[in-house]
Design a protein around this nucleic acid. Structure first.
Lengths: 168, 168
DNA sequence: ATGCAAACATTGCATACTGCAATTTGAATG
DNA sequence: CATTCAAATTGCAGTATGCAATGTTTGCAT
């Protein structure tokens, strides 16, 4: 059940929640469409791994697994496959012979950027179709929403979670 | 690349896109958290199936598979497991002996509602924490966004897609 | 210097999700 | 009645996933 709220007009809050949910559906649909383009080449988890690798640069297997919130063994085998597909490079770390250095290849980065750009393009198109008089209000409102969420506690690593990898 | 846009202040559009992306991350994080509570009991695809069953009521296997956009064989085995877990009931269709009638059990519905309520509660909390002067602007802005997206074409079934099942 | 604990990558094993290609059973249509 | 079509199901193969070893290397404290 919801936490106790300060007394206020409940209609407004419910309206806001409803509009947030509607907007969410739009965003999820955009994500799904931009991802669909990749799914012939890569699986969604593989794409997600590439996003992390592209965003954060070279890492070890264990840190990669942490960032994806999966078991190291899972990350291990995914790297195996992405490596075989020419999307990830695996080199021994000269500093510490226990660790392997993982990097997205040029091909891997290209895939990530293609999806990201497609997604941004689609949002741009929508946003450009909005009546100009709503625009600055929207920016302020969304920022206020994000700020309010920040105070309520949002895990900053969660944006690579699940089916919506790489909301960059 | 983006479609050709009517000439206008590019800073505003970019600002808007940025704020949309930020808000998206918040929403994804909320989804991830609300889903995390279930993951000891069910997998994410299983939960997604339950959402569809709960939302659309009794269906056949093939229609269920369609709605989830998975192969019937995939749906088949998922139903096997959900049935074994007591989340889905399987009865022969009296009309047509080829088809099976699939329904979420009470336990299944409870799980779905728990997640949905948790999610709504969290959004409510965030929204309630927003400064009141932004509220109506936010509702209007998000509706304008959703409307603009509607004109740009959004698949209405996509809200059960991938890792964000059941944005109800 | 030696030895012990901790960190890493890796592999074995088991389960789930996924699609494609049969196969079986029942309905519908000629 | 035969053919065709629809629905569920099963076989097979590949990917994702976690837990529990195992082997190697480091780092630290005797």
């Amino acid at each position: 059940m919801p936490a106790a709220l300060p007394p206020q007009d409940p209609t407004t809050v419910n309206e806001m929640v409803a509009s947030v949910l509607t907007a969410s559906r739009v965003l999820v649909a955009i994500s799904a469409r931009s991802l669909a383009a990749v799914e012939d080449t890569l699986t969604v988890p593989q794409f997600r791994m590439l996003v992390v690798l592209d965003t954060n640069g070279a890492t070890s297997l264990s840190r990669l697994a942490e960032q994806l919130a999966v078991n190291p063994s899972t990350a291990m085998r995914m790297v195996d496959r992405l490596n075989a597909a020419g999307m990830v490079e695996r080199t021994p770390d000269p500093e510490d012979r226990r660790v392997v250095r993982l990097v997205a290849t040029e091909a891997g980065r290209r895939v990530v950027h293609a999806v990201t750009e497609r997604r941004q393009a689609e949002i741009t198109r929508i946003v450009a179709a909005m009546p100009p008089e709503h625009r600055s209000a929207m920016v302020r409102a969304l920022q206020a929403f994000a700020d309010a969420a920040g105070e309520v506690q949002v895990d900053p690593t969660a944006y690579t979670v699940a089916g919506l990898p790489g909301w960059t």
